[in-house]
Each structure stands twice: as structure tokens, then as C-alpha cells.
Amino acid sequence: MNVLPGFFFYLLSAIILGGAILTITRRNAVHSAIWLIVTLLGVAGIYLNQHAEFLAAVQVLVYIGGIMVLFLFVIMLVNLDEAAKQRQFNHQWTIAVGCALALMAELAYFIVKGRESFRFGDTGTGTLNPDAAVIEFLKSCRDIPGLGPGGFLQPNTELIACALYRDYLLPFEIASVLLLVAIVGAVVMAKKEI
């Protein structure tokens, strides 16, 4: 049994959770952003650990290279000294404690219930086993070197393309139209005259 995947899962989880906690506790907004970047990198690491290479690269490209850069861009335009002086906690802490306790109880219940899954398990060898129809379809597109059981390069990107553009084409297109609507809305709100 190979313990490394399990070990990396716990290591990355620790990084993600530590980064998330530091993100919400730092007073300086730029430090928060840096810890959020660490968290997002950890998530990309989890994807890699699950052999979803394409997803990992897109996670880094979109969230860190795009969204976090824009976050930092906005943070730099804000007067940080003023923001740091303001109170960061409000007076609804009694309700917050209630919610947190309920959530903790729920989590504890699930952890006790599912304690079987906490061992250092084997997450597999990383060989994808796409069903025969998908392999046929991929091979009809072009000759992919090393495709199939025991192949050296996994057709990760191709499988995602199959899922997005063939099996779930309509939801994918609806999601992209939704994003377009959001962009147009943002432009309309930001521009005084168009």
C-alpha cells in the first residue's frame, strides 16, 4: 500500500485550513490576500493529488493569476491604514457562537460516523479507466500517444473536454451565458454613459 497520496492529502489539507484561518484573522488586507493565495495553491495541490492535472493548472491560472491579482489591485487602491483601525467584529457574537457550536456538533457527528475513511488509504495508481465508448470517441478524434490502460500520459484534458463539450454541453453553455450576463451587468453599473 502506498501511503504517500494519503500523506499528501493530510499535508495539503493542513495547509489549506491553516491558510484559511490566517486569511480571516490577519488585520492587514494584503496579508489576508497572501494567505488566501496559499489556500488556493493548496486546493490546486489536492487536485494534483487526485490526478486531475488540468483542473489543478486551471485553478492556479484562474484563481491566483486572475482573481487574486485583481483582488490585490483593488486592495492597493484602498486606504489600508484606515481599514485596519476599524473594528473588525460586530456585536452579534452570541448568535455567531450558537451557529458555530451547531456546526461543530454537526462536523463532530460526521467525523465520528465516517472515522473509517481517515486511514492512510491508497487513492489508486492514477491510471484513468475511461469507458470503452469514450476511448473510441477519443481515438476517432486523433491518435493520442499512451492512451488506455498503462499509458504514460493520461488523457485528462481530453476527458474534461468530452464531458464539457459533449455530455454536458447545454449546462456548460448556460453557465457561460450566465457569466456573460454578469459581466454586462457589471459594465452597465460601472459606466455612467455607454
Partner: peptide, 18 residues
């Protein structure tokens, strides 16, 4: 040689902007 080579480079160099 990984199956996301080019995407990997663009992703990593976008981190360099930070």
C-alpha cells in the same frame, strides 16, 4: 513531460505576477 505542459507554464508564470 506532463500532459498539461503548456498550461502548467502559463499557470506558473501567472503566479510570478504576484
Amino acid at each position: 513531460d506532463v500532459n498539461i505542459g503548456l498550461l502548467f507554464i502559463t499557470a506558473v508564470s501567472s503566479v510570478g505576477i504576484l
